[in-house]
Design a protein around this nucleic acid. Structure first.
Lengths: 206, 206
DNA sequence: CGTTGCATGTAAGTCGTTACATGATTCT
DNA sequence: AGAATCATGTAACGACTTACATGCAACG
């Protein structure tokens, strides 16, 4: 069993779904294409971790609705109690930032600005989703609690990356006081000042 | 050419390195095992993007020092000017959080606490690294500028995730005022309050 | 009349990990 | 005495992506 299999089990432990639904649902958790999901579902069904039901539809293609079995639930439970292991991030934006010294000022700013635009779009979508769930008064024992706190996590991290983008744009902006400050202090000192301001805001002291 | 190839080019554009050095250096940028790096280096050398020099050493195995060629530099430059595309995050912690409703309170807290411990360790290492670079007054045109802002980015995001962990632990803590508050408001309302407090701190108003 | 959504699958190929293979030096 | 660091490579396998294949319904 690979991690994708456990991701599928964790979604099916909440409600039965088709492979098609899983593909969109897994985006938050463990992104996978349908061409990878369907064979995994078949294998897991053969191992007795899942069962499925044919649903005939009119006007739409037929589908298979998969449900988790008792064996599947046990397999999932023993896995989630093992310590989490590997976080893998592969983001070509990071490589382009690393090589930013090869760009002129305009292109450097464009790199950051494009990222900022994407992040802003994501954040505004997330605000709507969070607003919706906020109506429901989710409890810590609810099935939806996990999804809710993951959404908030992503939202917080996105907003923090937005702050970082603004900080970098400030450093790059030549027609700005920051160039003057940069000449005197360097970017490192400005980062230190930013951090200290945050500490003052959060704790009232450094 | 795949993304790993460009990551290698971007490191070599700063200074020549051996495959062994690259393996540790790429961790921040595009993590890869040595068994993947060595064949890629050979192929890139055959394509004329890199050149290497044998270095004989005493007391240590011999090594090959790779340098970027003019062709390699041009290839890299045209790639970094293309828009960044794919961000892939695969983190089994997220799956375990999603399925947190299957855990009892103690195991749920342990999941978050383990993550918090890892993050705290990472952050304290990063503080030292940032302190070191802060001596150097890095300019925006410096070769080191990209690495520096990436380090700050990672540091900011880690600290934000630490905040999130504390928020979640607060929600899970049963022997705490938060349970009383949770009973009245629900976790969503508490998140909203947290966000509003941040806005007040940052802008002086909501 | 083209695109998006619904719905499932296979085949070929690339990317990445784990294991195999070697070997001296230094640190604990 | 065992582990870690330095240093390079190959082979086998597993994970993931891209392309191929089909087909109806609704929307603009």
């Amino acid at each position: 069993m690979n991690t994708l299999g456990y991701a599928i089990l964790s979604v099916l432990s909440k409600r039965p779904s088709s492979g098609y639904e899983l593909a969109s649902c897994l985006d938050l958790l463990w992104p996978a294409k349908h061409s990878q999901i369907y064979p995994v579902l078949t294998k897991m069904e053969q191992k007795g971790l899942l069962s499925f039901e044919h649903i005939e539809q009119i006007g739409k293609p037929n589908k298979k609705i998969y449900s988790i079995t008792e064996k599947g639930r046990k397999t999932l439970e023993s896995w989630i109690h093992e310590p989490a292991s590997n976080q893998i991030i592969r983001d070509d934006f990071l490589i382009k930032v690393y090589a930013i010294w090869l760009k002129d000022e305009e292109n450097a700013k464009k790199l950051i600005q494009d990222r900022l635009d994407k992040l802003n779009e994501q954040v505004s979508l997330q605000v709507k989703e969070i607003e919706e769930i906020n109506q429901e008064q989710t409890k810590t024992t609810s099935k939806k609690f996990g999804k809710y706190i993951l959404l908030c996590r992503s939202h917080m991290l996105n907003k923090e990356e937005i702050s970082w983008c603004h900080w970098v744009l400030g450093l790059l902006k030549s027609s700005h006081i920051s160039k003057l400050l940069l000449g005197v202090f360097g970017s490192a000192a400005l980062y230190k000042i930013l951090q200290n301001l945050k500490l003052i805001m959060e704790y009232g002291e450094i």
